[in-house]
Structure formats: C-alpha cells, structure tokens
Design a protein around this nucleic acid. Sequence first.
RNA 1: UGUCCCAUGGUGUAAUGGUAACACACCUGAUUUUGGUUCAGGCAUUCAAGGUUCGAAUCCUUGUGGGACAACCA
Length: 569
Amino acid sequence: MDNKNVMPEAENAAKSLNFIQQIIEEDLKNGKNDSRVHTRFPPEPNGYLHIGHAKSICLNFGLARQYSGKCNLRFDDTNPVKEDTEYVESIMEDVRWLGFQWEGEPRYTSDYFDQLYEWAVKLIKDGKAYVDDQPAEVISEQKKTPTEPGIESPYRNRSVEENLDLFERMKNGEFGNGEKVLRAKIDMSSPNMHMRDPLMYRILHQDHHRTGNKWCIYPMYDYAHGESDYLEGITHSVCTLEFEVHRPLYNWFVEQLTDTEYRPRQIEFARLNLSYTVMSKRKLLELVKNNYVNGWDDPRMPTISGLRRRGYTPESIHMFAEKIGVAKRDNVIDVSLLEFCVREELNKKAPRVFGVVDPVKVIIDNYPDDQVEYMEIENNQEDSDAGTRKVPFSKELYIERDDFMEDAPKKFFRMSIDREVRFKGAYIIKCVGVEKDAKGEITLIHCTYDADTRSGSGSEASNRKVKGTLHWVSAKHALDAEVRMYDRLFMDEDPAGHKDKDFKDFLNPDSLQVVTAKVEPSLSDAKVGDQFQFQRIGYFCVDPDTTEDKLVFNRTVTLKDSWTKSQKK
RNA sequence: UGUCCCAUGGUGUAAUGGUAACACACCUGAUUUUGGUUCAGGCAUUCAAGGUUCGAAUCCUUGUGGGACAACCA
C-alpha cells in the first residue's frame, strides 16, 4: 500500500492516544466483550455537576463517540439520605447542555435493587455473605488499620439458614437503623482494607426519591456499582483514582455473581483540580447553604450551571477537556487555561459592542449642540460575515474612567490633557481640560474634535494614526445596564490545600461587583444568553436566568490587558 | 512503618528502546481604528543512584518524594 495516498488522514491519526484509549484499543484488538465499547457516567444525585464532572462526561461520552459505542447516564442513588430529584433534573440538563445524548433512558442504580437483593441472597447461600449484629463502631474497630490485620466478627460463621432469615427480616423492616448489616465474607487480614468483609447492605428507614418506602435496606456503592455496570453491559467503567483500591472488590463481586465471558473493566484516571477553585461537592454545598453565593448556578461557582450562566459555552468546555488530557498523576490545572479556551471561542463568535462600565462624561466643545451622527462600526473584526451597525455619536459622550489620566506617563496611550486619541469609528479627539468636584474627582472632560478625521470618510486626515483608540457611548442615547463583574471566588491558589484552615478564609470579598453601565442603544435588542465583547473590557453575556425587566450582563471573562498588567508590576 | 498508584519545563500533556515535543503561562518584537486578535521569536523539562543495551524519559533494582485506602458516603 502506498502511504502517500493516505497522508490527509494520517495528519488526524497522528494524535497520540491517552492511556484509556490504549486499553480500549487493546481490548478491541483482543475481541474482548465482542469488541463493544460501552461506557457510563454515574453521578450520585446529591449535588450539582461541576467542571470536574465535565471532564468525566467529555471522557466517557467522548470515548463512546470515538469508538462508535454507547454511553449510559446512570444515577448512582443508593443513599437516599443525601439524594434528591432536584439534582437528577439539573444533572440531565447539564449533560444535555454539554451536547451529549445518553443511550436510551437514564438509568438508576435503584432500578436494580431487586436484582441486587437476589444476588445478595445467592451470596449468602454460597456462604459468601453474612449478617453482622455488631454496631458500626465495633465493626470498624475490628477492621483495624491498614498496617495490621483485622479480626473476624463473632457472627461471621452463622449458618446459611440463619443468615437468610435475618437478611429477609432486615428487608422486611424488623430492625432499626444500624442494628444489622450484611457483609461479604472475604478476608479480614487482607492488606487491602476494602477486602476486610466489606458491608453490602445497611438498614436505612428512609424514603428514597424513586423507590419511596419500598426498601429499608440499601446496597453500598462497592456492591452495587460493579453489578450495575454488569447489568448495563458496560465494558469500560471509567472512574477517578480514589477507587483504584476498590478495584479488587469490584472484580470480586462480579466474579462471584456471574459466570459469563463478559466482564466490565474498571479504569481509573486522575480527577481534575483547578487552581483557585474548590471542587468538593460538600464544600460547594456549604457555600450555597450559608449564602456565600446565590445558589448552585451562581456564576462564580465552578458548577456547569454556574459556568453556563457566566457565559461559558459547551464548545469552550470541550476544548478545555481536550487540552487538559487524561492521565493518572495528580494535577492542578491553571484556571488561565480554562479562561484561554473561552476567550479563544468567544473571540471568533462574540460581536463587539461599546459599553462603558465606569463612565465619565466627555463634552466635545466644538461639536454642534444638537447634531447626531450614526457611525458605522464593524461588529466583529474576526468575522467578515458579522457585518456592521450604526452607533450614534453626539456632543456629550461617556468614556471609561480608566481611559483618562491627568498626569499620564509616556507609555499611556489613552486620553490625557493635550493628547489626541481616536474615538473608535468616529473622530480624533483632543482633551483640552477637566472639571473636578470638591473631592478632586473628575466630573467632566472637555475635548475638541477634528472634523476632517471621521472614520471611513476616506480623507487623508481620517487615516491619520494616533496611538490610542477609545470606545465611547453617546450620553443621550446610552442605555443603562446592570453589569455584574464576577471575579475568582477564592484568592488562594489552592484553597482546598490548607488542611488546617477553613477554605472559606480564602474567599475573595470582591468576587462580585455590581455596577450600572452605559451601553450603546443597539443592545436594546439583546436576548437572554447573548454574548458580547465590551470592547477592551471583556466578554459579557446577558444573564440567562434574569427575571428582571432590565438588561443584566454577567462578565464571562476579562480580556487580556497588557497595560494594567504592566502597571501592577 | 502494610497494600495499591504516581513521578517529563512554572502548569498540564505527548514521545511506548532510536533527535525530548505540543499547549497554557511568562518575556521580546511586528501588525492592529480594541494595549484585544493575529504573526514571528524567546525562556524552560525527563526525581536520584545503580543495572540491561550500540542506544533508556521509556525496561530492571534500590532509594527519595507525592497520593489513595482504616464511612452503615459515593
């Protein structure tokens, strides 16, 4: 075969495989499980999904897509104490928003409670499971520590008949919470703690969000998970690293209960850690419950719903997941990579508009009092199809307070007394003086304009180069908009890493600032969820969840700004 | 003083016994009616010591460092 003929594809194929893809391709080659690929995303519905889950979602659904396989969505709902349908709803919404479709209906571990119960009975009959009457503390004590072997429970060698009877009575609700448990009979001296007769069932007199009061015994994760994978025909059960030590147990249950060729295979990868970001569901719940943020979808939250509301796009999250890769070593990804991915995408898609977030008024002394000119401005220089729009220009305008400095250094390219700047799409303007209030705050900037310099007029003067270009909004045409400037929630690079300190000590007091901005009139047509670049300021979206009858913008991400960066040094 | 896992620039990820590369970050410079974008360039890497080999980031041994496991959580 002539290699030269396949060069175009070779370029794509050149991408290296991550270690999971290598395992899958090996399995495919060996014809394992009929060379099927079937993955699953199995969240517990006890909280909202966050960017770390997004990595797992992109991985699992992505693998299925890549290998023409399937991917299930399964709610791992074995602990009714913590779970709720609110979370089920939000999880489905988030997965869909990310652009993935699960195979068939959503699955629930609770769908398998009957089968799991039968299998537990089988294990008892095989002498591989027993009912233990001891309280939690005693069982825990007997397990000992990782460095010393555990000791066996006095109930370990009960007869099969007694175990069967007791287990059935557990199911029938004859015992209270914690009075009895079902344990697998494996090896109390195993060096792996998870093999020291792990619990299979505990008694919880608690309504379940799906099965109601049908059950008062609930299976534990270790028992339920592998079996659920088995029942769904999962081939590759991808999970995070902390389950690595559970794998022998996962395999043990599958091997005890089934005798087919088919075997699901657990593969572990390193979970995502993001700098300046807390990812633990427990801590996020704490932020929500104690009103440090306004709910799970607060744009400062690392939740998928928070990112969505902040203006992140599914595509940008896919790009991020692609770039961070998959491996087994602990990692901390810099948030700047995530921000890069949003900017990268929004730069191509988001129309540029003029919005002044911290306005200061400018008056052009030599401009006719009642004149209004409509300046034609490009919507997006990155996209020639984006077209242009008309923006009104008049004698009184607003500019950004940061864009003026009275005693400016030479390197300051914006407005200063006696210096010229271009008002983007309009004229070259020269500052001639300022007015201040009693506190010395600038209240008005006086300018003159050069009428020959109108942009696009073709005149020689209109092509004159000046160092700075400012965006502006006509005062009498401006719309008021509420702008929510979100910043990072935590100031410390690794707020979760300080084990002796409360992570909330690192909360940023300025993580949300709400201001009234002056924006150009074309934004009266803006629709919920629309995204814009406020030229020179950052990317903003119209708050997707706004219920108010006014324009509300959420800041998605700031633009890179080499001037303010150099000033901070 | 147990079992398991991991170790490549500042941060991530490749290279699968044959020239250590890509992205982010950072730093120059050019272009720019956004101090954005784009473009060009720069900085910087195999935990250590032995061994196998013509050749080791890769295989072996030992050590060091980090992580997971002792929930009736998942």
